[in-house]
Design a protein around this nucleic acid. Structure first.
Lengths: 340, 340
DNA sequence: ACTGGCACTCGCTACAGTCGAGTGCCAGAC
DNA sequence: GTCTGGCACTCGACTGTAGCGAGTGCCAGT
């Protein structure tokens, strides 16, 4: 099953033309638009081979060819170079940076930027708590038996949680609790805290012990076990581009999938360091998204990774361009976070 | 232009049938399904009058009738009673209440509940800062010249903002700032704070004045002027129900509108006390939403209102049912907030 | 190994014809 | 005056037919 250079060139041409025009591409049109140096008949022979190998297919007997998921995969892996960003795109990314006032702002701007640049649906995960360090823990009395715990992470994330205490807690006790909790936990990774939190209870004075027990169990539960991930989403309107041809006519399954945080996390959350991941159509584990492709990568200050971001669109998407933009945006966001 | 009781009954029947079947309804089908006590011919005469008055229209010459926006308006105002909730719906609402751990949780559960119950797009505004009182202000040093301000409102909202100070601030100064700010601001409505914040600067010691000036300007800017509203959205997949007949075939404008926070706020944010607002089609100010209807209301603890919530769907929606559910959910959320 | 030629396939569009739901109108009954 | 049955009419939806054309596979020839 030799796929010589020309056959690969034919596949690349098919992908590029189909992505651009959204119409099945025939042998004649191909030789006209690309300098392949051979006749349509030859191209047809190559196409027959490519089809046999499962890289392209014919929607109807008398139509042109369309890439299959497998064809896109080969294209992404071996036939495309990452497209350099245009100056305008570069400027757009830089401009969005200035003036972000807090983490929420950064994330929202990022997700909108990404949606606008790629014209796809954009997804940005907030910096994961599991990968953040505790910067400060604040306890605010709401009533005599209620405390609000506010955790500030070094990534800028702020999480709060209401805690119902077992009994009344005096203001001085709150101060003590606050001091102890901060002394022990500030600077540590949340994923490493379970033993530390346990120690908190053991080491506290008898007076504080009941309160500390409640507090620590809430800390564990909220911040570690049920690890609160947050996601921002933008550009769903882009799903309607390309008429109803993409996504086989129904946006339903896509929109449903996008409402599930779990699904989104699965898409972009498994950040392998410095890799850009591309999931094409069927490769996706989620049934509802089998007509879609996802380009995602991790981001974070310096070379560490604290979260993921990416875009989702039809399998018929501009992979080189989207990969370039996802990477560029991730890098810029990382730099921005590093400044804090 | 007399619209006697029977003509109104005909209009009601048309609306109900059309909402149920999504198909233009003819005179014959009407008399079969409703006990109107007259013949199709009579109904046709009534229909002719209703059409002349602009309450219904014919998509094609030989088709049945469809309500116009004006027809829906009349239906909502005079022909429908609020539908009592089914026990199952009541149970669903109650069940969602239990186990909400913080404001974010409450809002997310609420918006999903509303989307599920009404099978429409649901929108919930977080308690508005303008209508909240300050419960506590926390200052956390991030570096010698950077402070994170965390504001906790009585509605449970927590907002943070990074502040770049004019110069290094000693830990003791931070303590002083914190004490003063809390003494002056806790308990006051944010919309009333501008004079108070101003006074903060005037009354502070010379040593603290520069820091306090920066801090107070950030407080004003972030929390009052650029009043940070938050919105949660769910159920966009419901837009795809009813095929592509609703929304004249394109979800595009709707999805675009739903991405704009400003638009959403306009839809549900203008909470007039205890009123349920219904905007039908053209009545909507936003062009993109002229094919949609919105049912919204305010919510809050007790009889006060701190935010708005509502649903958006095709003009062809079950108004009585949706009005009932929006009201019920708003009431339950209000009770939940009152417990804090 | 490539090319030109040729017969074939089949989706798309246009057009004509039929069907039927629904209408408006009118004369007549209550 | 109000309602009803009857009737002619309209027009969208559906069906069937025919022609077009893009695109293919195959084969003989270079």
């Amino acid at each position: 099953m030799g796929l010589d250079d020309r056959k690969l060139a034919v596949l690349r041409a098919i992908v590029e033309d189909y992505v651009a025009t959204q119409e099945p591409v025939g042998s004649k049109a191909l030789v006209e638009r690309h300098q392949l140096g051979v006749s349509p008949a030859t191209v047809r022979n190559d196409m027959a081979v490519l089809e046999e190998e499962g890289y392209i297919r014919q929607p109807h007997t008398s139509a042109g060819r369309v890439p299959t998921d497998r064809g896109y995969r080969l294209f992404v892996d071996r036939l495309s170079r990452v497209k350099p960003l245009s100056p305008a795109e570069r400027r757009a990314i830089e401009r969005f940076l200035v003036g972000a006032v807090d983490l929420d702002d950064v994330v929202h701007r990022t997700v909108r930027l990404l949606a606008q640049l790629t014209r796809q649906v954009a997804v940005v995960q907030y910096p994961s708590l599991a990968r953040s360090k505790v910067r400060h823990l604040e306890l605010v009395p709401i009533s005599t038996t209620r405390l609000m715990v506010v955790m500030i992470a070094d990534t800028g994330r702020v999480e709060q949680r209401l805690v119902e205490m077992p009994g009344p807690v005096a203001p001085d006790d709150v101060t003590d609790l606050r001091r102890v909790v901060n002394e022990k936990l500030v600077g540590s990774r949340l994923s490493d805290t379970p033993p530390l939190v346990q120690a908190l209870v053991d080491e506290s004075t008898p007076q504080l012990r009941p309160a500390m027990a409640t507090l620590s169990s809430v800390l564990l539960e909220t911040l570690v076990e049920r690890h609160e991930e947050r996601i921002a989403l933008a550009g769903t309107a882009n799903l309607t581009r390309g008429g109803l041809l993409d996504f086989q006519g129904s946006l339903r399954p896509i929109l449903e999938a996008l409402e599930e945080e779990v699904v989104l996390l699965k898409l972009i959350g498994e950040a392998e360091p410095s890799t850009t991941r591309v999931l094409i159509g069927d490769e996706n584990e989620i049934d509802n998204l089998r007509a879609a492709s996802v380009v995602s990568t991790g981001y974070g200050p310096g070379s560490t990774i604290v979260g993921g971001l990416g875009v989702l669109g039809p399998t018929r998407m501009d992979y080189p361009g989207n990969i370039a933009m996802v990477r560029a945006v991730a890098r810029y966001v990382g730099e921005l976070l590093a400044q804090n």
